[in-house]
Amino acid sequence: MSIFQLHVNGRLHTVDIDGNMPLLWALRDILGLKGTKFGCGVAQCGACTVHLDGRAVRSCSVDVGVACLSKVTTIEGLSPDGSHPCQKAWVELGVPQCGFCQPGQIMSASALLAANGNPSDEDIDNAMRGNICRCGTYPRIREAIHKAAGSKS
């Protein structure tokens, strides 16, 4: 066990944990932030996507010892009130079905839009192919990203 300082959603948390613990479990089990989801544990499904210094990463595969060097943003910190353009577009277009993968989808989508304000379908497919949705909401995810891009510009 070691002491780490984690910058999460603009707050500094001091935790005494195994430095090899993946960020996912530190967020969920230690900090109680449940919006970041466990779907596969091996960076295959994207349900655990968070931002490290604005970059979309799979938190199941980033150790706390590494994550503590960066600013972490989770779905809870994306906007104070669900008003991020992606969150709004997701609700307006009725994207979610079971909804479980959607925090991860939105974290990937918001990182994409931060880097590319007007992504093509191909850009979207490339940025989002790491995020699985078993309900198959892909057509609406594409549409919502375009909508969010439009509302930003």
């Binding site: 449940k34 970041t36 809870e76 997701w90 979610p96 909804g99």
Partner: peptide, 18 residues
């Protein structure tokens, strides 16, 4: 209405493991 959508996109603790 689609009541749960707003909670889903904000990562509210609404699932089994939460």
């Amino acid at each position: 209405p689609f009541v749960d959508a707003a909670d889903m996109v904000r990562g509210k603790p609404i699932y089994g493991a939460d």
